[in-house]
Design a protein around this nucleic acid. Structure first.
Lengths: 242, 242
DNA sequence: GCAAAAGTGTTAGAAGTACACCCATGA
DNA sequence: TCATGGGTGTACTTCTAACACTTTTGC
């Protein structure tokens, strides 16, 4: 029997949810992965949200995060880490939000305040099809263009971005999840400029790269570009110091 | 009517708790604040734990953390910040732990897994009486001597210490909560050596202090010491750069 | 050959590290 | 006067920041 059918028999914990903030980089800007919720109550109702859902009574938080992401987007094996828990008593006080939840999960009792544990992952944005489940219309939205989201998801996205900056400062290797397997120095510099919100001198940046043991130069170069071809680098996570 | 009596009428959320990790420094070592739980089931039962408890249905997480700390220790106006949420499905699977909880809160249904949001605060350890409620025997225990604790509280303490080190690296001013209002350069150096787990050259450390805008030298000096009296410094949080 | 982006080196100042002796105080 | 811990300065190294021109490629 398929896992999603089996899950119908699992008991939902109506007090705790997980939400997944997936931040992506396409070479130009940072984006966040959003989904559409089904069963929209009326047209004045915000239908865009982070991928997230109530957890089951018998699952770990980390497990729940992976399951929910997979169910809503088809993405599997995405390494996510918890970064903050949101539990203000009025965070689920919008009656449209609670009605939607009660219908979705066929809940008998009205939902009270829900505590949500927010997870974060950094991914490259892939032009190729990366989602295997389009039922919830997963799509990347540039973080600068995120306006209204369901629940307190806009706040969650903003706090995720602050967290990314702090982690990057602690250890720049944190950011390499956002880059493709092979990348150019310019792609890397653009990313760092976005995250640190400043510019970096090109020459000094090259010097900095050459001092990062976990960034290794490849022999390969770009092809088909109308200018000098850039060298590719790769990230070697085994060379990150602890 | 007293607040604790009013609270009897509030409904407990049996799925979510808060735990407070208070780290203290007495000039020598880092300690953590622990309490004894009442209603111990048998003598083989670990009665030492972090101050923490289930939240009420109608309170914010931050509110709950302050309330619980105050109820268990009498400490008020302690600024705490959430640092991680613990929710493994087996974290409340010890029958002695769950029985204790059910009795304590007069719960009708058996408790399932509880998600706990852990809060952190850094305090100086004060020799003078700082607790106004000794019912739960609050006391400071050196972190090196913490062995068995109830639930997964030992793991929570360990993760709190990692978090402290990371925050200190991001911004050393994070550590000043651990120092008294006025402190000597040596006290400060001892603290930094503990947290960073290394030694610092005395002269270089003085130079470093003089470059921290948020550490200001006072005219005052130690008195009654059997050696040259040390200068006092104070921490000025308004001078911390964001 | 031109437009467009890649790649490269030097210098000056700031910050960090190593290192040894005299000073103030109470007993 | 002695034991104890407090406080200081200099030389060297490393890191950071500023700065401009040549190279490669496709069109």
């Amino acid at each position: 029997m398929r896992q999603d059918i089996l899950n119908c028999y699992r008991k939902v914990n109506p007090h705790v949810s997980v939400d997944c903030v997936l931040i992506g980089f396409d070479g130009e800007q940072l984006s966040v992965l959003l989904v559409k919720r089904q069963g929209v109550v009326d047209k004045d109702f915000c239908d865009t949200k982070l991928p997230g859902s109530l957890i089951y009574m018998d699952e770990d938080l980390d497990e729940a995060a992976s399951r929910v992401l997979s169910e809503l987007t088809g993405l599997k094996n995405v390494r996510m880490d918890q970064f903050k828990t949101f539990g203000d008593k009025d965070r689920t006080s919008n009656p449209k939000d609670t009605l939607w939840l009660e219908r979705l999960h066929s809940l008998k009792a009205p939902v009270d305040r829900i505590i949500t544990v927010a997870y974060l992952s950094l991914l490259k944005v892939d032009k190729k099809a990366m989602f295997t489940n389009y039922k919830y219309a997963p799509c990347w939205k540039p973080v600068s263009e995120v306006d209204r989201l369901a629940f307190d998801h806009k706040q969650i996205v903003q706090e995720a971005l602050v967290y990314v900056r702090n982690q990057a400062e602690l250890n720049p290797s944190f950011l390499f999840g956002l880059l493709p397997r092979k990348f150019t120095a310019t792609q890397m510099r653009k990313l760092f400029e976005l995250v640190y919100d400043r510019t970096f001198d090109v020459r000094n940046f090259h010097k900095r790269i050459s001092q990062m043991p976990y960034v290794v130069a490849l022999d390969e170069r770009e092809t088909g570009v109308p200018h000098r071809a850039a060298r590719y680098y790769k990230f070697d996570k085994n060379k990150v110091a602890k």
